[in-house]
Computed example of a mutant assay.
Amino acid sequence: MRSKSFEGMACSIAGVLEAIGDRWAVLILRDLSLGLARYEDLRRSTGVTNATLSDRLKHLEDNELIERRLYQTNPERYEYVLTPKGRDIILVLHALAQVGDKWAVSGDAGPPLRFVDHKTGHIVKLAMVDRETGQRVKAQDLLPQEGPGADDLVRWRLTHFRK
């Protein structure tokens, strides 16, 4: 079941959610980021129905997060790969995994997946950093401010921010 579209909303978060679509698409993006590329592998990994998988792949392709590539002819078969825009969306997935791991949402056995620097083998995590200095910024030190694309609704939301 599809919910109301976020199209036209002056909100980057809503725009990313609109491009992704739903929770099944998040799992498909997860699998693509892990190297799965073929339809049957995606279906097996997610457990999603054929109809849902086909619909979500089409949605992700329409939103330029993935592209189809022909890997076999007679019969034609395609694999799916992340576009540069799709690879950027993976940051969202890493953030979800990091929060899920912190709060043990998948159980007490520990994180089911870890992300490591292939050069050092050290576990990595996402962090907020000052764009100018590269210094880490704590969540409690963030201050939202109006950006150039702000509309009246964004400005209204900002009037409710409490430090």
Results as ranks from 00 to 15, higher is better:
residue 112 P to I: 11
residue 49 T to H: 03
residue 63 N to S: 12
residue 17 L to R: 05
residue 155 R to G: 04
residue 106 S to G: 02
residue 129 V to L: 14
residue 123 I to S: 12
residue 2 R to T: 14
residue 109 A to Q: 15
residue 30 R to S: 01
residue 129 V to K: 14
residue 67 E to H: 10
residue 81 V to A: 07
residue 104 A to K: 15
residue 96 L to H: 10
residue 47 G to A: 00
residue 98 Q to N: 01
residue 20 I to T: 07
residue 159 T to S: 11
residue 4 K to A: 09
residue 70 L to W: 00
residue 73 T to N: 05
residue 69 R to F: 04
residue 101 D to L: 00
residue 50 N to T: 12
residue 132 E to N: 14
residue 142 L to D: 11
residue 95 A to T: 05
residue 62 D to K: 10
residue 6 F to D: 03
residue 17 L to W: 08
residue 161 F to L: 11
residue 34 L to V: 00
residue 16 V to N: 07
residue 113 L to N: 00
residue 154 V to P: 03
residue 1 M to S: 12
residue 102 K to D: 09
residue 71 Y to C: 04
residue 43 R to A: 14
residue 110 G to K: 09
residue 93 L to H: 06
residue 89 I to W: 02
residue 25 A to S: 13
residue 54 S to N: 08
residue 112 P to C: 02
residue 80 Y to W: 14
residue 118 H to M: 03
residue 158 L to T: 12
residue 17 L to T: 00
residue 153 L to E: 14
residue 109 A to F: 13
residue 30 R to G: 00
residue 9 M to N: 03
residue 12 S to N: 09
residue 117 D to I: 04
residue 27 L to R: 10
residue 138 K to I: 00
residue 135 Q to H: 09
residue 114 R to L: 05
residue 101 D to R: 02
residue 55 D to C: 11
residue 54 S to V: 09
residue 133 T to N: 05
residue 25 A to R: 08
residue 6 F to I: 01
residue 31 D to S: 10
residue 32 L to G: 04
residue 91 L to E: 13
residue 136 R to C: 00
residue 97 A to L: 12
residue 125 K to S: 11
residue 29 L to F: 08
residue 89 I to C: 08
residue 76 E to Y: 09
residue 25 A to V: 06
residue 58 K to L: 14
residue 79 E to T: 03
residue 95 A to F: 13
residue 57 L to P: 07
residue 53 L to R: 05
residue 154 V to L: 08
